[in-house]
């Protein structure tokens, strides 16, 4: 099932410099990580998917809707985007109102919107703080509020832009859990992210952007096996894979369990 189709996409902010060139890609149900250096065009790409920017050339279909022919407000019923900095969106004086702002905008009645907001807060673990002022929360909690406010819109497609920035270990695990819950609910989750360990642990598919183009696209394990291309895009494989390679094992490992189990079977001899 195809949910997003991008065909022959070109985009430029100024006439003489193309940020994205000739991109053709389809998204199905697989959760997808978009990785690449700053300035590779990742954020521009997701803004195009969301309809906030329009292609200079080519087309993007979200389900059956061409982004050029539909308003951002209409597309918001189908595709949600969580911005990097939660401070860019928070304006209500309590958490519950902030989270129900989105669902109200896209046509849910007040009662349903509040229900959806509560469900979303439950998912991110902030239900007990629904009556607090968002600015009395810590920055990482505010980030969870901004995630909940998009989750509450109950769209089939969700995009995250750098969800783990400024999160500590516990926060990072929380974000991972939220993304996995969304995937389990059958949502298409697309995420821009710099943390390769997180990509390996969480996503089925990875797309590497390099210089406004797609350099690699495939199952996460397969993408991380292309060492040369990764290097070219200034990326590294996950730490577990780096360790495996150092130990002379030329395979991709996605998490510590995989490598632990593999090593258990090949007789590592600890030094006495």
């Amino acid at each position: 099932m195809t949910t997003i189709r991008v065909s022959n996409l070109h985009f430029s902010y100024q006439e003489d410099f193309e940020v994205l060139k000739e991109i053709n890609v389809e998204f199905d149900h697989r959760s997808t990580a978009i990785i690449g250096q700053n300035g590779a065009g990742k954020t521009t790409f997701v803004k195009l998917l969301k309809g906030l920017l329009l292609p200079t050339q080519g087309d993007i279909w979200i389900k059956d809707y061409n982004t050029k022919e539909n308003t951002v407000a209409f597309l918001a019923q189908h595709i949600g985007l969580v911005f990097q900095n939660p401070n860019d969106q928070i304006f209500k004086s309590n958490v519950l109102d902030e989270v129900s702002f989105g669902p109200c905008n896209i046509g849910f009645d007040q009662k349903t919107a509040t229900e959806k907001a509560k469900d979303a807060l439950q998912m991110v673990g902030l239900l007990d703080k629904q009556n607090l002022n968002p600015y009395d929360l810590t920055l990482s909690e505010r980030k969870l509020v901004s995630i909940a406010s998009i989750v509450a819109m109950d769209t089939d497609i969700l995009i995250f832009d750098e969800p783990t920035i400024a999160q500590d270990f516990v926060g990072r695990e929380k974000v991972k859990q939220i993304i996995k819950d969304l995937i389990r609910k059958g949502k298409l989750v697309i995420t821009i992210i710099h943390d390769m360990d997180f990509v390996a642990e969480t996503f089925d598919r990875a797309i590497v952007f390099y210089n406004g183009n797609i350099l690699l696209d495939g199952d996460t394990r397969e993408v991380f096996s292309h060492k040369e291309e990764l290097k070219k895009a200034y990326l590294e494989p996950p730490h577990v894979t780096q360790l495996a390679n150092r130990l002379g094992i030329d395979k991709v490992f996605l998490n510590d369990e995989e490598l632990t189990n593999y090593l258990k079977n090949i007789e590592l001899k600890p030094q006495a």
């Binding site: 780096q242 360790l243 390679n245 150092r246 130990l247 002379g248 632990t260 090593l263 258990k264 590592l268 001899k269 600890p270 030094q271 006495a272």
Partner: peptide, 25 residues
């Protein structure tokens, strides 16, 4: 995997891991 140095401490870097496990490339 219970890989430690002589004092019973665990490796914290790739180098130490491969050294303690006797499994360098």
């Amino acid at each position: 995997l219970h890989i430690t140095d002589k004092l019973g401490l665990y490796p914290v870097t790739i180098e130490e891991f491969s050294q303690y496990s006797g499994q360098g490339r």
